[in-house]
Every structure is written in structure tokens, then in C-alpha cells.
Write a protein that binds this DNA or RNA. Sequence first.
DNA 1: TTGAAAGCGCTAACAA
DNA 2: TTGTTAGCGCTTTCAA
Lengths: 348, 348
Amino acid sequence: MQSIEMKTNKETTIYDIARVLNISASTVSRGLNDHPAIRKDTKKKIQQVAMEMGYQHNTFASNLRRKHTRTVGVIVPKLDSYFMSTVIAGIEKKANDLGYNVLIGQSQESVLKESSGILTMFNSRVDGLLISLSTETKNLDHFKILFKKGIPLIFFDRVFEHPDCVSIVIDNFKAGYEATKHLIDQGCKKIVHLGGSQYSNVYVDRFKGYKKALADNNMDFDDDLVIFNKLDYKCGIEVVRQMLKLDPVPDGVFAANDASAVAVICGFKQFGKQIPQDIAVVGFNNTPMSTVVEPNLTTINYPGEEMGEVAITTLINQIKNVNSHNLNTIVLRHDLIIRPSSARNKSG
Amino acid sequence: MQSIEMKTNKETTIYDIARVLNISASTVSRGLNDHPAIRKDTKKKIQQVAMEMGYQHNTFASNLRRKHTRTVGVIVPKLDSYFMSTVIAGIEKKANDLGYNVLIGQSQESVLKESSGILTMFNSRVDGLLISLSTETKNLDHFKILFKKGIPLIFFDRVFEHPDCVSIVIDNFKAGYEATKHLIDQGCKKIVHLGGSQYSNVYVDRFKGYKKALADNNMDFDDDLVIFNKLDYKCGIEVVRQMLKLDPVPDGVFAANDASAVAVICGFKQFGKQIPQDIAVVGFNNTPMSTVVEPNLTTINYPGEEMGEVAITTLINQIKNVNSHNLNTIVLRHDLIIRPSSARNKSG
DNA sequence: TTGAAAGCGCTAACAA
DNA sequence: TTGTTAGCGCTTTCAA
């Protein structure tokens, strides 16, 4: 047996173990895969020898033959965002439980990188793909290759309507509505909306929610109170300068993410404004920062990890052709978490 | 040509296009791969027909034949941490540039999950593996399978000494030293160290740096001033209670990460303590939170994205057998960013 | 319960 | 410059 152990550089294949046992490779294959039609003792012998020879299943070769890879691709705009990393954590965890690998890619908010990512995933023959769209993405042309070959595709968070693809989202319209309504309830009379790219469903819907809430409460919509930008910290600070020039200065801000909401709070504080008395602010995402900034940020909570889990579960079901009851959109719950950044004394 | 286009469910292979062109599959293969020994016009014809037939390279089959996958694995303790997502962003970006895919996994701080992750990666025949160890990991037994087959392995951040593996780290000892020294320079007389798992090089070294700084400045080391825990927000708050019981109350805290440093600040503020006058605090990692908490947190900055880029570049070089000048450890720069949480009036 | 043989789609040595 | 042929390591029909 000693000589067997020594084969260290060459891969041990099922043929090697077949030779040792004087049986056929197919029997070995079956033995290793716990095929019912193999005698228990041969199975045992096979597994024994496989062990001794340090045999390791070559998923790879197996996949070629079986015509699937048991790996899924995930493409996101940016990996280094709190929300996205949460989603991916959920995806990985569940994928792992279900016996799938996950291949990862980022579009860096560019359609070009998005397309090339899709091609790479396709060439790697992923069994399915999960994607959150870049802000630049305005159509689904670059996905054609997947549709053509019938590779399941699921959108999450930043999605695009397509009859054959399910989308996993939250109700951004409702969330935007609730955030704005809350501000109104707190007595705000002039509410700014700080929004993101209007190519992205999430920001479009949050904006719509904002408008609807105003309308429902007999407040005029004013174009000057809406600012679209990259929603990062720097932009938030700039926005404060702009707002300060308005007369009267707005008394409420609904920002479409936490980073910019936090920036707005910090900015106003620098100018001696009181939050929430002078300006009440609401963010979106419930990132860790929201409980660190002072006053703590009112925000929309939004289950990233769960979104990832739902997305991958749905995808794998689809890959396995199970459970695809023609569902088209899965909407996850969200909630408004009220914290001091918006909680004014109830007086009006 | 119409009939060609229609082959939509079956994969188009190089054989299909060979048949159409009445040439051999190998010529097609070469033509597609831009082999020098193929006539320009045949090459053109091949690519033309490939296009028309919607041919897509099957990386997969190619890999089986070539005995490599051009994919690398990355295993981290947790995906949903700011630092890790930064590192992974760097890895993905560079890997992509260099033509590699990245397969992702998380150990969830468990050796068991770590081993199974390694096995999965191995079975997927990754060309190399990047890993940041779980806190539970006390030896490298579960990596044997990689060593045996000579699969390159590189550690980053949370590492383990091994003669054949390069590690990408920062100088945690020095950083810990500097953080503590800074506190001493600010006049702190009784400095608490809030550390993490002592199985992890990063926390061990930060702790050592703390001790050395005390020693070098004639300050007694006191076991009661050292607290090890999970370093999350909740633990940080608990620590505050503990510290408040001490007499006198400590006047400085060096926390081994930002989350717990921020928690400490918030905790002390709740009890009416002044930061930094009563207690000065320093964190580690320079996460976004550090510039939001009030007062802003002094912390060690530490290039996550770059760490990822260096790690993957080194790994790929190793895979290609280039540039492996027996290097064993790569140390990235770090720096202490001084902010108000520790900046006391220079008086002493 | 097992074996023979074909083949997944591609590449590469060798020959022409 | 191109073709022939033999695999990469595994699975799976079909036959025994």
C-alpha cells in the first residue's frame, strides 16, 4: 500500500482506484456516488481505497459531463458597501447550504463591466445568475446571451422589469412614502428629497413615494427641493450649502441613503442648526452609522441578508425547475425605524 | 445561414463550426485562440462563422483539458464587515484584470466551515487560494490537501506562519505600539486595552504593541486593564460598565477595532464622561463610523483594498510560477490618524 | 450487480 | 499552415 500513498503530484483518478481493485471505473464512480445498485462491500472497498490513495472528487470533470456546474454568479455594482456585503453574506451562506458555489463580480456601476462580467459568468457556465444592476444600465441587451441559452437570471434590489425574470425587492415607493409622511407628521413644512440616479428603480420609486406623500397631504411639490446626486458623504455636505441658501431654509430632509443623510446631519450641525428641531432628517438602509451619528438617524430598515437568501433560494429552485409558479416579483418587508434625528416634540 | 442561427438550445461547439467551414476542429480551436500558425483569412472566416452561430467559448471544457481553472478561491471569516468587503473588492477588481475568476466563501469564524470551504475550493480545482483565518483556527491541518497538491495558498490579515506560504499583513505590533504611545503622549496614565481573540495574530500583536509601549514608558502593565471579547458594539458597552467600577477610572482606551471603540465612546458619554478629557480613545481600522462618531475617532488606517490587490497579485504570480523570490511576508503600511477622540490639550 | 464504450467540449503533440 | 488522434476525469446508457 505504501507505493499507492506516494502518488502525490499526479491526481488520483477513479481509474487508478479501479486498477487497484481490479474493477471498472464505472463501478468506482457509482461506488463513490453511493449508487443503489452497488454491493455494500464493494462500495466499502472502493471508499476505503479512495481514502488511502487520497482520491478527491474532480467536480470539474464531473460538471463537464453532467453539463452543469453547481455554481452561480453574483454581480453587484460595488462590493464594498455595507448593504451589498450583507446581501452577499446571505447569498454565500445559503448557496453553501444548498451545495452551490458562488462566483463573484462587480460592475463598478459601468454597463461595460457589467456586460463583460456577464460574459465571463456565461463562459464559466454558471447555472444561474444573480444581479443588482449598475446605475448606467438602461436595457437588458447584454443579457441576451443568458436568455438565449435559458440560463436563469434573477434581479435583486436594483432591478429591471422582464417577463422571464423574477425580481427581489422591497417596496421602495411605500418606503419613500412612509419616510416622507413621517416627516410631515413631525410638522415639517418644507421637505427636501435627496435622491440617487433616476435610472435606478430604487431611487425612482423612493422619489415617487416622496411626491405622493406630499400630494396626499396637500403640500406643493417643488422641483427646487429635489436634488439628485451620487449620495455619498461629500455630496451630502454640498447639499447642505445649497439648502442653506433657500428662504426659508427647509425643515426636513428625506435622503435616499444613510451616508448622505448622515452627511446632511453633520453639515447642518456645523452651521449651528439643530437636528431635529430646525431640520428633521430621515435616511435609508439602517447601516451601522445610523446609530452612531448624533442624533441617531431615523431610517428605513431593509433586510439585506434575507434579500440575499431569498434571491439565491429562488434562483436555485429555478435551476432545478422546481417551484417556479410563474412568480415575477418578491417583495420583502421593510420598516421605518424612528430615531431622534426626526423625532420632534409632538406639537406642530 | 438562417438554419445555423436557429440552433439555440444546443450549445454550438467548435465541431459545429468546423463542419460548416469544412475544416478540422483543431484549426477552429486555434483560430479562435489566435494561434500564430493559422492563416489570417481562415482565422477571419472562423471568427466570422463563430459569431454568426452564436458560439461561446466553453471555458469549462477548456479548463479540464488544460488542467487549470483560472479561478481562485477566497475564504474570509465574515463577508459582511466593512474591512473584509473592502479587501474583497480589491481582490475581485485585480483578479478580473488579470483574467481570473473568484470563488467566494465564508468560514463564519468556524474551523469546521473553514475546512469544508477549503475542500469545496479544492474540488472545484481552484488554481490558488486566498484566506483570512477564522479565530478558531489553531493549526493548518485542514490545509494539508492543498499543500500535498502544491496549490498556492496565501494568507492575508489573519495569518498563520508557514514556510511555504506568503502572508500579507500590516505591522500590528507597531500599530498597537503607536496607538498606545499616542495615548501616553496625550497624558493618559491608566490605559485600558480592549482586545480580540488571542488566537489571532492581529489581536495578539496589537496587544503586544500595547504592552511594549507601556514598558518603554515606565508604565506598569496591569492585567485588570486588559479585556478580551468579541469586539462588537454590545461588548463595548459592557466594557464601559466594567471600567467605571475601577478606581481611579481609566483615562485612556486602546480598542483593537473601531466598532468597540465607538461603543466605548457612546457608553462613556451616556455616563456623562467627556471624551477625550476624561477618557481618550483610539480605535483600529478607520471605518466610516470613525468620522461620524462624536468626537471623531482616532484610529489606525489600514489599506483593505490594497491588501486585497497585493494578495491576489502575489497569488497569481505564484500560480504562474513567476516572481516567487522566496518571499514570505509582505507588510503593508499603516498610519495613525489622530482625531478629536484622543487629542487632548497638550499640557499633561 | 457490474462492465464496455461513448462522449461532455476542448487542446496539443505529432504528423503531414 | 492544417489535420489526426488521443486524451483531460468523469458519468451514463446499454448490455451482460
